[in-house]
Write a protein that binds this DNA or RNA. Structure first.
Lengths: 153, 153
DNA sequence: CTTAAAAATGTATAAATTTGCATCCGAAAT
DNA sequence: ATTTCGGATGCAAATTTATACATTTTTAAG
């Protein structure tokens, strides 16, 4: 039994069940032959981006983070790692970041003054990037590569 | 001081700051004259649907449930001067403002309820204005002229 | 195969959050 | 003004989660 198997099991259990505590999850794992301690579970949940929210009926429930992407390990001083995902939609690029990081990343993009990028709008953990007319998605992605590659170790 | 005030303060603080524990939030509340105990905070957070997630850097952060954003406080006085530029792209209008002014300007636009404008999204220094289908760029620009001309001395 | 370094895990403990219970406070009714 | 009722709150205990530390396991390099 390896860690990947355990993480997969945990994600599956959390996705398919209403689980209110780590102890409950542990019990659920017992039958499967893939067990661990509560401490390990705590660490696993963080790695999976699974946090405890509310079940809407007065109780708690573990939930997969809405962002869906799990952030890579942080590299201090780097903003490149603050991009956790990108999605194209209607000619616009949605950039995901960890909570609170959107502004910092957007500012970095804005400062380059790249012509291809008409502008950005940053929320808390999402940036909307609007390309100029007649600029391809590929060109924009290349811009981002250029902007952030020096930050990537 | 009543509960509604406290809840509003808590939501505002959580929305605008990276808060990792209830104790931290308590300390932040101290200066405001609206205080309570950590136990009450725990109950308040549940009521507001605010739960603890991850900040993407190895720490924790309290988060509002499903990305509900809240309009910022309107800035009294002239907002016309707060528009530093506009750019059309992909049928959308990007409005630039000085840092921090986007919300105030966007609110002013929204309040007019102009039919031609489907909606706006404000970041910190940029507003994305989405025109309704089949509305010309010129019509939108005229709307803005109308909205802001009274502010222009 | 052996060794060194890194990663993973469990144990024990600390830290953080939740909750039971008693009390307090304010609104409505008498 | 007094009583009554229900929500709100603080306190302290219980519960739940996170982490420091030691140990084991895995990985990588000779």
């Amino acid at each position: 039994m390896n860690k990947a198997t355990r993480l997969a099991l945990i994600e599956k259990l959390v996705r398919e069940n209403v689980i209110g505590s780590q102890e409950d999850l542990l019990k659920m794992m017992e039958g499967t032959g893939t067990k661990c301690t509560q401490a390990t579970l705590s660490r696993d949940l963080r790695q999976l981006g699974i946090s405890r929210g509310f079940d809407g009926r007065g109780g708690y429930r573990y939930l997969l983070s809405s962002g869906r992407e799990q952030a890579a390990e942080a590299v201090p001083g780097s903003t490149a790692i603050a991009i956790t995902g990108i999605t194209w939609a209607r000619g616009l690029l949605l950039i995901s970041t960890p909570p609170g990081f959107a502004s910092a990343v957007a500012i970095k993009i804005d400062r380059t003054g790249r012509y291809e990028i008409a502008g950005t709008v940053a929320g808390d953990d999402t940036i909307l990037l609007i390309p100029r007319d007649n600029i391809s998605n590929e060109a924009i992605e290349e811009c981002l590569m250029t902007i952030f590659q020096t930050d990537i170790k």
